[in-house]
């Protein structure tokens, strides 16, 4: 892949974000610059509460920058849009709808005919491995299964970009591995531009085409890593462990 061929989908141009409250101004993102290319899987990686989620919300349009701009497909982001899908840490499912109605929510509110959106939703429900659970309400599903519904819901709306905000942070270690394998499989079969936020180095290396290590608050780009290991990746391969050690060390440096 050469630079010329890659189409830029997301441009984060000199973005700053300050939150104002009674205690004063709080600079969370500081002159942040990076691009994301078409069908690229980018992981925003950084320590604890470093403002990664804020960056994701800026791309999604849930927050607006106080300086600079976010441009998606040539258009400046001014608010949420169905062309950008979101998968959340706390699943944010619609608890009063069953799995099918959750997944088809996007097409439904955008006026897609019932037969067509059912078919589409069924495809994504099958893709995330929830076949047979269409009529279940979210409370009856385990954490991992709820997260699958969240992923299917985002994909079913067929957005250009999928933002994932630490989707597996609340899951136990084994379920997390399973879900990482699932995301790897899904993003191979459904090519999309994905921006994935995590503080877990293993997860970052397992999934990413490119990892962007962010500074702690205020957030800016510290370093980037291209991950060229063959997929599906092996968590205990020497190259994997070596990169993990490197990234973990670099992250510790950002905290100081």
């Amino acid at each position: 892949m050469t630079m010329e061929k890659k189409k830029t989908v997301i441009e984060v141009r000199d973005v700053s974000k300050t939150f104002y409250n009674r205690e004063g101004d709080h600079l969370v993102v500081d002159h942040l610059n990076f691009n994301v290319y078409e069908n690229e899987f980018v992981v925003l990686f950084g320590p604890g509460q470093c403002g990664k989620t804020t960056v994701l919300n800026l791309i999604a349009g849930l927050e607006l920058p106080t300086g600079g701009e976010v441009v998606v497909n040539g258009e400046k982001v001014v608010g949420p849009s169905p062309s950008r899908g979101m998968v959340y840490q706390t699943t944010n499912l619609f608890m009063w709808y069953n799995v099918m109605k959750n997944v088809e929510f996007g097409p439904c509110v955008r006026g897609v005919k019932k037969a067509e959106r059912r078919k589409k939703a069924q495809y994504y429900i099958d893709l995330v491995g929830l076949t047979g659970f269409e009529k279940h309400f979210p409370v009856k599903l385990s954490g991992g299964m709820q997260q699958r519904v969240g992923i299917a819901r985002a994909y079913c709306n067929e957005p250009d970009i999928i933002c994932m905000d630490e989707p597996f942070g609340h899951l136990d270690a084994q379920t997390r591995y399973l879900m990482e394998e699932e995301v790897d499989r899904i993003s191979a079969s459904e090519k999309r531009t994905v921006v994935f936020v995590t503080n877990n180095a293993e997860e970052a290396i397992y999934l990413a085409d490119r990892i962007i290590l962010l500074h702690n608050c205020p957030t800016s780009v510290h370093r980037e890593y291209l991950v060229n290991l063959p997929r599906p990746r092996n968590y205990v391969a020497p190259e994997f462990l070596e990169l993990r050690e490197q990234i973990t060390k670099d992250m510790d440096d950002t905290i100081g």
């Binding site: 609340h170 136990d172 503080n199 877990n200 510790d252």
Partner: peptide, 11 residues
């Protein structure tokens, strides 16, 4: 019993 399950990784 999994006392660190929900904590930030560095921590």
């Amino acid at each position: 019993d999994e006392p660190y399950g929900q904590l930030d990784l560095q921590l």
